[in-house]
Design a binder for these strands. Structure first.
Lengths: 126, 126
DNA sequence: AACTTGCGCAAGTAAGTGCTTGCATATAAA
DNA sequence: TTTATATGCAAGCACTTACTTGCGCAAGTT
């Protein structure tokens, strides 16, 4: 099956994401998939076609049934795209966290100093 | 800005993915973004609207310019979704690799045995 | 042979997408 | 104040999408 469609496009639809979830662990035949959704069998059939056209799905004929098998490796394109930005934002989060911890430390040092002063004052008052 | 749109939907378009790439490192104003593409400024403006509606983008007015800043954390939804399957397929790859290495090992043992046999035969022939 | 089951194909439809052109408005520069 | 710049809003259009209904066909079952 050729890779005509875009994987990003394919997973944009929530129904198609649900289908992938359904067949990620094991092959499932077309009708069993369709039964899980409110829409017609035809609609699901079309979703399956789209998924198979972009390589996310393999269809194996077995008698009169067709079993759909997920080819999760095809999600790699998406994984890599997101991963680069994930690194970026995770890195920023880390920096921010360090900064906040530093701030907290400074604040606690300051309040510690205040305490000392306070006790000194009360002492001197005595 | 409400999160009306779906992030998966938003990143389905290649132009929008390119826009995210363009502003990931630093804020860029609308016209500078539009200049990088062949389509009209209006078309880009619409893409920016979609991105901002799903929270992937913050727009900050500065005088008459509007700077677009990426909010990469919003990609987390996508990241988590892909990551679960990534773990699955990466795990399978690992299993497959181990299996192949085991096969290879067995094969080399077998060929070693054959060699021995062969030498024995040639010896006995002598 | 007749019936049931699993599924694809085709046509039709309503809604959505991506794009364009034209016009409006606020800010900044002359 | 006039003019240029940065941008949004609205209407219109071709194309795509998600879905439906109806039909057909091949593989099993009775």
């Amino acid at each position: 099956m050729e890779t005509r469609r875009d994987v990003f496009q394919a997973i944009a639809d929530p129904t198609r994401r649900a289908i992938i979830g359904m067949i990620a662990q094991q092959s499932v035949n077309v009708n069993s998939i369709a039964e899980q959704f409110d829409v017609s069998r035809q609609a699901i059939s079309l979703h399956l076609k789209i998924l198979s056209e972009c390589g996310l799905l393999n269809i194996q004929q077995q008698g009169r049934e067709r079993f759909c098998e997920a080819r999760l490796e095809k999600l790699n394109e998406v994984h890599e795209w997101v991963e680069q930005y994930h690194k970026l934002w995770a890195g920023r989060m880390k920096t921010l966290k360090r900064f906040l911890e530093q701030e907290e430390l400074q604040a606690s040092v300051v309040s510690e100093e205040r305490k000392k002063k306070a006790t000194n004052i009360s002492k001197s008052k005595k």
